[in-house]
């Protein structure tokens, strides 16, 4: 963890110095007062400067990489963690050999890991940020599969003139189905049930 010690006539002045030195803002650090300033007589004799230590918080990205590497280490798999932050979310892409075990059936292991990382990283300070884990384009492939499934089942609903009930999915996957069929003239989509068993229903428009 990065830290810096600074002195000044007042605590505030010392903190300001340290912040500009590290070029970070006040909410990114913890401040520890090492020595309080004393005025002394006539403002100069025996006066003592303030001494403080400024400790920079770990950034969310650093925290994520550290935690994931710790986890993979204990799973005895070697994974390269690439991280990319945008205003909406932190995108984490994992690369390595045989990462199938990290994806799991229909991505359930990847989703579980993503959920844990989200909780762990957002536990610390105020600002919440979504973390999205991806393994070598798995999310994109899954999205495409779900879109194809949606189109196929919409056709089936049209043929049968009835409703098609899909299997339970998480909110992200349900949204992919809804979005895929949004403009479809033949069917409506809606969700039914409670998480984690909530499922999409594709319904023929009469």
């Amino acid at each position: 963890m990065k830290s810096v010690v600074a002195t000044g006539r007042t605590i505030e002045e010392a903190v300001e110095k340290a912040l500009s030195n590290l070029s970070v803002s006040r909410d990114q650090v913890d401040v520890e007062v090492l020595e309080k300033p004393t005025r002394g007589f006539f403002g100069f004799i025996g006066s003592k400067t303030a001494k403080i230590e400024v400790i920079v918080h770990k950034s969310k990205c650093d925290h994520i990489v550290e935690l994931l590497q710790d986890i993979f280490n204990k799973m005895y798999i070697s994974v390269t963690v690439n991280i990319d932050e945008d205003p909406d979310a932190i995108h984490v892409n994992l690369e390595g050999e045989n990462l199938g075990i990290l994806i799991g059936r229909r991505g359930q292991t990847l989703d579980a890991l993503q959920y844990i990382v989200n909780l762990a990283v957002n536990k610390v300070d105020g600002e919440r940020k979504r973390v999205i884990l991806n393994i070598e384009g798995y999310r994109e492939r899954r999205e495409e599969t779900l879109q194809q499934l949606a189109f196929k089942l919409a056709e089936k609903a049209k043929r049968k003139h009835g409703d098609i009930v899909l299997e339970p999915m998480n909110s992200h996957e349900r949204r992919i189905i809804h979005t895929a069929l949004q403009g479809n003239p033949n069917v409506n989509t809606y969700s039914e049930g409670e998480d984690p068993y909530r499922k999409v229903i594709i319904s023929y428009k009469k």
Partner: peptide
């Protein structure tokens, strides 16, 4: 509460990850 979660959601996620490691 932090390891169990609402309706055991966190506990389930933890078990899923541990199970994945155990498969090997």
């Amino acid at each position: 509460g932090k390891v169990i979660g609402k309706q055991g959601r966190i506990a389930k996620a933890v078990r899923t990850v541990v199970k994945a490691a155990a498969v090997r």
